[in-house]
Amino acid sequence: MNQNRRRPSNTIEVNFLARWLVLVFMIGLAGLFFVYLKNQQHSIGDQTRGIESELREAEALNASLDAKITGMTSRGALQRRLEEGYLKLEGIRDTAIARITPAQPAEPDGVLRTASHDPDSRFDTEASPRTMNR
């Protein structure tokens, strides 16, 4: 049979096609992976922003509470509360004070002494009026 009279046929080059398909698939996969990673990045970024925001709010709350505590325990505020009767000053008994420096015992001479741990008054149940004056 004459070669020129053969019916033309379109052969599929499977190897060639497979190579390209694999390449396109790989590129596609890489693209999808890239998009996935990018989404992950954004998602983690949002989480980071959320956590940072929470931290900031916690810090601000902490600072705010600190300021409130400082305000409520300031000398002026305590003095005011003392005057209003919400607080009361209680004298410290001689027996409840331990001194590292040598004791200066309270003398009945009407002279105010610094707080001292007087062994003689260890078992006194009544606080010394001088101590109460402190």
């Binding site: 900031r56 601000a60 600072a63 300021a67 400082t70 305000g71 325990t73 002026g76």
Partner: peptide, 13 residues
């Protein structure tokens, strides 16, 4: 925008 104000807890002291 975060900021702060100064406070003096002891007021006039």
């Amino acid at each position: 925008e975060e900021g702060s104000v100064r406070s003096y807890p002891n007021c006039d002291m």
